[in-house]
Nucleic acid binder design. Structure first.
Lengths: 173, 173
DNA sequence: GTTCCGCTACTCGGATAATTTGTGTCCGAGTCGCGGGGG
DNA sequence: CCCCCGCGACTCGGACACAAATTATCCGAGTAGCGGAAC
């Protein structure tokens, strides 16, 4: 019951990427510098996000990362699942039928009630995460946080984002 | 985002202990045998449950484990927290203020919005777990599962439980 | 026959290794931008 | 002066070590029950 440290970095990076304009990209090294993390390691997590379709990666000197879809359609659940894996946290090993008393297989057709209860709780967790859109996070940050912090972050984004010269039509991708 | 394997064993053991009568106890070795687990390792988790006040342990030849309070007052959350630890799964490392731009500390008085969202989701998770009482699990098992499985489990409990000769008054403990 | 004592066996409890997962780092493939040369 | 080509540098991507946590195991402390001896 412990989330990896990379989840926090991934969410912060996604929130920062929500501030770049249109098709512009931001290098992973810049975000690593912004949060004081190892660039090589952050790439690993950003890569996971790209593999899950949350981010898009552009190679080359003007390359970097960008959101694959509008921030309104990205939830915290997407990010957490991309980094931590899609499988449920609780895995039922069916230890109830591992004992020395080997009952017939027909006695275990019903699913394990413990597994059902744990999965139900996890479903509540994921639902709460799915209700938190990335745009909400950014909006709350903009309204609640200190104006200096927000301005500094915006300046950092403007300073490091790389506009894309060629813009392939978005609907074609 | 992955729960330890011992959580499943702990819940199954607690459900089994719910079937023992009154002050009687059940050795950890018997439960390990029932689920095909390492006795020495299961003891570790049962010990964690005892340290958290979910179980009581009795040493000696007629010793073993027993529920510390009625099954109606034990929730899955108690068990999960005892085994996995009480700290939240998501730990905010405050990486937002780790970058090279050192703003004044007064700019970070407001809590991190990302942390708040993650903690809110985890609160939903724990609430769902807290609503699942151990007695509910047992009742669902008794009514839904195959009668043969339930009978086998009851027989196992009766076979391995060790009644306590001397019964210290419950209110005194 | 009854009582006391010592012993054995069984229990939990904590300290100690092995393995898997997560963390951190490194080097290679690919691609765009820039500079030089030619037309 | 304009266009084409080659080079360099910067990016992501995957393969490779290191550390920590989880998993698994062993041995020791403690206690109830039982058998034997003394009274």
């Amino acid at each position: 019951m412990k989330l990896g440290e990379g989840v926090e970095a991934a969410i912060h990076c996604a929130a920062m990427l929500a501030g770049v304009d249109g098709a512009a990209t931001m290098p992973g090294a810049a975000m690593a510098e912004a949060f004081g993390l190892s660039p090589s390691y952050l790439l690993k997590h950003l890569n996971q996000l790209a593999a899950s379709g949350v981010l898009e990666s552009v190679p080359g000197p003007a390359g970097g990362y960008r959101l694959a879809r509008p921030a309104e359609r990205i939830t915290l659940l997407d990010i957490v699942l991309a980094v931590e894996g899609r499988e449920p946290a609780f895995r039922c090993g069916e230890i109830r039928q591992r004992g020395p008393v080997r009952l017939d297989a027909s006695a275990y057709v019903k699913p394990c009630g413990i597994n059902a209860a744990m999965l139900k709780a996890e479903r509540a967790y994921r639902t709460a995460l799915a209700e938190a859109r990335l745009s909400d996070i950014v909006a709350a940050y903009q309204s609640d946080a200190d104006p200096r912090s927000f301005a500094a972050n915006c300046a950092f984004v403007v300073r490091h984002q790389r506009p894309q010269k060629v813009q392939p039509s978005k609907s074609e991708r």
